[in-house]
Simulated scan of single mutants.
Amino acid sequence: MLVVLLALVFSAVELLPGDAAAASAERGESAADLAERRHLLGLDRPVWERFTDWMTALPTGDLGNSARGRKVTELLADPLPNTLVLAVSAFVITVVLSLLLGCWAAARPGRPTDRTITHATTAAFAVPEFVVSAVLLLLLSLWTGWLPAVTVTGGDGRPASWTMLIMPVLALVIPQTGWNTRVVRGALADQAAAPHVEAAHLDGLPLHRILMNHQLPGAVPAIATGIATSTGLLFGGAVVVETLFNYPGIGTVLAGAVAARDTPLIAGVVICAGAVVSLVLLAADLVRHATLGVRG
């Protein structure tokens, strides 16, 4: 899947107007200068040949050189940890909130609480990250002045204060919580019709015990799979959020790389994000198989 995705990246950049040589050209450069730069960057070679060379070097950890001549690994060394901090924080908060809200709604099926949570989470998921970010900027920064509107980095390339993480994390958490709460609620609803759950109701067990001891364990595989598959949306939202809040992550790097038609740098960002998503999906599969094995 990663190979196909990377091939699509190389092809998509090739279809964009302009190229890395033209994007990095300085004013007054002649056509001969541009042609020479295209030759140095290998842009005069077929795209499939450049893709093959890049993929051949990938197993050695070589992500190639950017259009500016720097190693892609060097350009991603600082932004990638920043994005991981942002994404992991948002992921953990999303999982906790989704489980709490999903269980709360499932404990009161059909009641006003269940309907309120269902409608609220549907609305939260339907709102794009850039709209959530704009609302947060208005409420928490421009109108109240509680939080800084943009991220200021220190000498180490990290955000100068942890408070600068709050709005970017919230901008990712709100839509993701909306989606994953629906996943948790749906998985618990499916388990509610299981024979052992109905038997627990007939035995007169308290609703919270039925939910925690009978419904939730059976719903874990579906919940783990649903939450894991949403990590791709999380990284996609990070690109928008990091750009809006000037957060020093790979999303900002990706936006600049697309503008510069810098194919190796774009591919480097994609392979990093793809590797993280693949690891999360693998972890979800392991949880699913372990849970099914225990139940079996």
Rank of each mutant, 00 (worst) to 15 (best):
T52D: 11
L41N: 00
L142M: 10
T151D: 08
V132W: 09
D44A: 13
L282N: 08
N82K: 04
V47R: 04
L97W: 00
L41I: 04
H214F: 03
V4G: 15
A260R: 07
R38N: 04
L16W: 00
G293D: 01
Q191H: 02
R288D: 11
A106P: 05
A90K: 01
L99R: 14
V3N: 06
G251M: 04
V241C: 01
A222R: 03
G237V: 10
N180V: 03
F125N: 06
P206A: 13
A290S: 15
T177A: 12
G296Q: 07
R108C: 10
A77C: 06
L40C: 00
R108S: 07
G154D: 08
L16I: 04
L281N: 13
A107I: 08
V258Q: 02
A67N: 02
A187H: 05
S278I: 15
G249M: 07
N180E: 05
S278E: 10
N246E: 02
D285I: 05
R295M: 15
T181Q: 08
I223L: 03
W162Y: 12
T113M: 14
V183S: 04
G249W: 02
V241P: 02
G186N: 12
L136P: 04
A23Y: 02
V4D: 14
S24K: 13
I174C: 14
N213R: 07
E26K: 12
R111D: 07
A120I: 03
A238C: 07
V150T: 13
L292M: 13
L137A: 12
A32I: 13
T151R: 11
A21R: 05
V127R: 08
L58E: 05
L172I: 08
D19K: 01
D203T: 06
L43D: 04
T73I: 10
V4K: 15
P112M: 03
L5N: 09
A224P: 01
L140K: 11
F125Y: 09
G178H: 08
S133V: 05
N213V: 09
A124T: 04
G218V: 14
A134M: 03
A275V: 14
L286G: 14
D44Y: 01
D156M: 11
P217S: 15
F235V: 04
A120V: 06
G237P: 06
D78G: 00
P175L: 07
T113G: 14
F51S: 11
V173L: 01
G178C: 03
L234H: 04
L63N: 01
A20R: 07
V85A: 14
A200R: 00
T231K: 06
D262G: 11
G226H: 07
V253H: 00
L100T: 09
V169F: 10
S278L: 15
F10C: 13
H196P: 08
S98M: 13
G218R: 13
D203H: 12
V197A: 07
T153E: 02
A194S: 09
V258A: 03
D78M: 01
A67S: 03
L188K: 02
S161E: 10
L233C: 11
G256P: 00
L6G: 00
G18V: 00
W146M: 14
V95T: 01
N180P: 09
H119K: 15
L75C: 00
S133I: 08
L6Q: 13
L147R: 09
T60S: 14
G186K: 08
R45T: 02
D78P: 03
L139G: 06
V92S: 15
G155T: 10
A35M: 14
G42N: 02
